[in-house]
Write a protein that binds this DNA or RNA. Structure first.
Lengths: 209, 209
DNA sequence: GGGAGGTCTGAATGGTGATTCAGCGTAAAC
DNA sequence: GTTTACGCTGAATCACCATTCAGACCTCCC
């Protein structure tokens, strides 16, 4: 994919990360090029040296952050054993926890911004749809394997993937916005409950965090 | 509540509706006061005559639109019979369908904007949390009645309410963004599937749209 | 040492858009 | 018929911010 991280390429990524961080902390509408530049101790002109316009920068940053999130999860999944354990990782990665992410901003902080922008930015919409599809495919594959291994009851894996992905998105919104009724722990519990109920995961193999 | 709709009060609502419509069509960040004014054929100064600032206008508009949505659904629910029928109404009201809403913009178009703004606007966050809580309470009450009437299997109604609300939010996002895998019909089917599975609704009483 | 190319910046530029304000029209009140 | 209050607007103001550009610095190569 990337032959060698050239200087300018790493600088680009640095800017994308700074942009993500700025959107996460100041909000999409309040993000100025100067804020992003401050974040990496550079001049505003530098940003426009690497990106043709603010709009394209925002778009690319949202895509970038989404990719980082997906790749991080993918990496964690490879280290897991059973299908149930993999679903557990997936769920916990989707729970907005304040403590995690000492350095980088969590991906889910940017989801509302990405959704809002996608409505009018076709290239972002396309990228987002692609990543979402692969996210669901990942869920579907895990469940498929779990069923094949006799770990889960048989279900329509595609329907299940859409449902779980949607459930996680919806729950993550509540948690992220600090809804007093739904914190990260309850989100995790409710998501696990859905999985266990639907797939009839035997309690014995369940991950209880 | 409202003793009589005074002139200035109805004008206020007109502006709030115009603001919602503008956010829905142009997006949160691209919404200018001039756009809103154009929408009702007035001058930009009028907007600031009724609202102290653009920020407070946006906040109030998002709250207003949310309230309208909830009240609309509440009205429809009162006309329904069984608990299952009520859940059906709730689900279908949450499905972003292009055809509905000839006049006013659909509430769900504004959800991402509301989520994005809530992150930095405490008053919007509080209003949103309150409305969300009442939305879930409505679901919980319906399910509670359904269980009492022997229509549903017993479950924890609060947990169920959070799950269904989250599932609907998550699915609505996909549909709204035009995800090719999830359209309004599939959303409705998947939400009904979750309800039926969880509450063991007998197929005989089910609404098949 | 001198050029060349790549990286970066300071200082304009220019447009945009929120906000202000002095006042216009009108209709009811006296 | 004059006053008053209200609903509204046109025309500034005023800041802010994306974008541009003319170079500075630095490093590598000849």
């Amino acid at each position: 994919m990337s032959p060698r991280p050239s200087l300018s390429e790493s600088r680009r990524n640095e800017i994308l990360a700074a942009t993500s961080a700025t959107i996460a902390s100041r909000g999409l509408c309040e993000t100025r090029i100067a804020d992003i530049a401050d974040h990496i101790g550079a001049s505003p002109a530098l940003i426009l040296y690497y990106f043709p316009s603010k709009a394209s920068l925002l778009t690319e940053a949202l895509v970038y952050q989404d990719q980082v999130f997906h790749e991080t999860v993918k990496g964690a999944l490879d280290r897991a054993g059973s299908a149930a354990a993999k679903l557990s990782i997936l769920i916990d990665a989707s729970c907005p926890r304040a403590d995690r992410s000492a350095g980088e901003p969590d991906g889910w902080l940017l989801w509302p911004a990405a959704w809002e922008m996608s409505r009018h930015d076709p290239s972002l919409a396309a990228a987002r749809a692609r990543l979402d599809e692969s996210w669901r495919a990942q869920i579907a594959a895990i469940v498929h394997d779990g069923i094949a291994a006799g770990e889960f009851d048989p279900v329509d894996v595609n329907d299940f993937a859409i449902q779980l992905a949607a459930l996680l998105d919806g729950l993550a919104i509540e948690v992220m916005l600090g809804d007093p009724t739904v914190d990260a722990d309850r989100m995790s519990r409710l998501a696990h409950d859905f999985v266990d109920r639907t797939l009839k995961t035997p309690a014995i193999g369940r991950h209880d965090r």
